[in-house]
């Protein structure tokens, strides 16, 4: 499995200006030292509450936002700088699907114009090839040909999201950052769009960075998952690592908060939730440092890393010396 994109010690800090002279007095640590990598053709899940910095990571990857520090490496090339991104037509390969399909489609443009925009800028097709490609894309996303000259407001939410996906896949990208792509949709439509995203992934070997706060959706979509809290990762692992063997208290709380459909174990579930909550109250210091931020990551297994103190990690019973050193070298901070 080849690595497509790697993020190294990414930091995004926003200055806070206050006082008489409007000087920078503090920073918002939106993203504060994050490492991970996405492999070709796989879906990487990024989970966290709103304000945890997950959208900021997505924006930095596609190039909408500047990194304060750290590197974005795409196919071995450093693409942190805008100039180096432009040189290799980076956005031809790395695209984005937005949460709000209404706002992400220009209301004054027809479907044709919307899908044609990236093709026009990156592919330089002649007119016939352009028409053909756009019609093909409409087929791929399952919209009828007659909608080609309609405006976005004439579509339903799910259909609009499909237009957004058609635009994103128009240039045959390798990686698509999907920022909460279905959270604005009805539940019935969500599954449709998700399955369809999976289909085109298989067909065109696309990698996704799937940003969501919905653990159910993430479980359905992704292979590797990173849980984010307060600008840092608190747990990285495969789907099984995270869902079956959560180590960090924040992950545990998230998982405990998933509503259970099965009412037979209601009491038991409730007791479980309360126990987790108690653990969170009692052992807060084991997971968050003095300033209230998560600790650097420590490696538990090859796939599974958790942000916790050395003692806790040892108590968790893994952490070979080498993995430990690796994690520290990589984890930075």
């Amino acid at each position: 499995m080849t690595e497509l994109l790697r993020i190294e010690d990414l930091k995004v800090h926003y200055p806070i200006r206050t006082g008489f002279w409007n000087r920078i007095t503090d920073y918002v640590y939106a993203v504060d030292g994050v490492n991970f990598s996405i492999n070709e053709g796989e879906t990487y899940g990024l989970v966290g509450e709103s304000g945890s910095g997950k959208t900021t990571i997505g924006s930095v990857i596609v190039g909408l936002e500047k990194a304060t520090a750290g590197k974005v490496i795409y196919k071995g090339q450093d693409v942190t700088k805008a100039s180096s991104r432009r040189k290799i037509h980076y956005n031809r390969d790395v695209q984005m699907i937005f949460q709000d399909s209404m706002s992400s489609l220009n209301p004054r443009k027809t479907v044709y114009q919307i899908i044609a925009e990236p093709l026009h800028n990156f592919e330089h097709l002649d007119n016939n090839a352009m028409d053909k490609r756009i019609k093909q894309l409409l087929d791929i996303v399952g919209l009828p040909q007659r909608t080609l000259y309609q405006y976005p407001f004439q579509f339903s939410g799910g259909q609009r999201q499909r237009i957004g996906i058609a635009r994103a896949v128009a240039t045959n990208p390798k990686l698509i950052v999907a920022d909460e792509p279905v959270s604005a949709l009805d539940l019935s439509v969500q599954a449709q769009v998700l399955n369809f995203m999976k289909d085109i992934q298989k067909e065109f070997n696309i990698s996704y960075l799937f940003i969501s706060h919905d653990l159910g959706v993430v479980r359905h979509m992704t292979k590797n998952i990173a849980i984010m809290h307060l600008g840092r990762f608190v747990e990285i692992g495969t789907r099984d690592d995270v869902f079956d063997d959560p180590q960090h208290i924040y992950t545990k709380r998230l998982l405990a908060a998933i509503p259970e459909m099965d009412v037979t174990n209601r009491e038991q579930n409730k007791a479980h939730r309360l126990a987790i909550e108690k653990q969170y109250q009692d052992h807060h210091a084991d997971y968050y440092d003095a300033s209230g931020r998560p600790y650097p990551m420590r490696k538990l297994t090859d796939t599974h890393s958790v942000a916790m103190t050395r003692e806790e990690a040892e108590a968790a019973g893994v952490a070979s010396g080498k993995a430990e050193a690796d994690a520290l070298a990589k984890g930075g901070e």
Binding site: M96, F98, S103, S104, N106, P107, N121, F122
Partner: peptide, 27 residues
């Protein structure tokens, strides 16, 4: 400018001038 279509245009490789006059101005 707050609308995502401006971001989408940027990612579609359009220049700032094109975004201003072809995307925002019609609105």
């Amino acid at each position: 400018r707050e609308n995502d279509y401006v971001k989408a245009s940027k990612l579609s490789g359009s220049s700032s001038l094109a975004i201003m006059w072809k995307q925002i101005f019609p609105n």
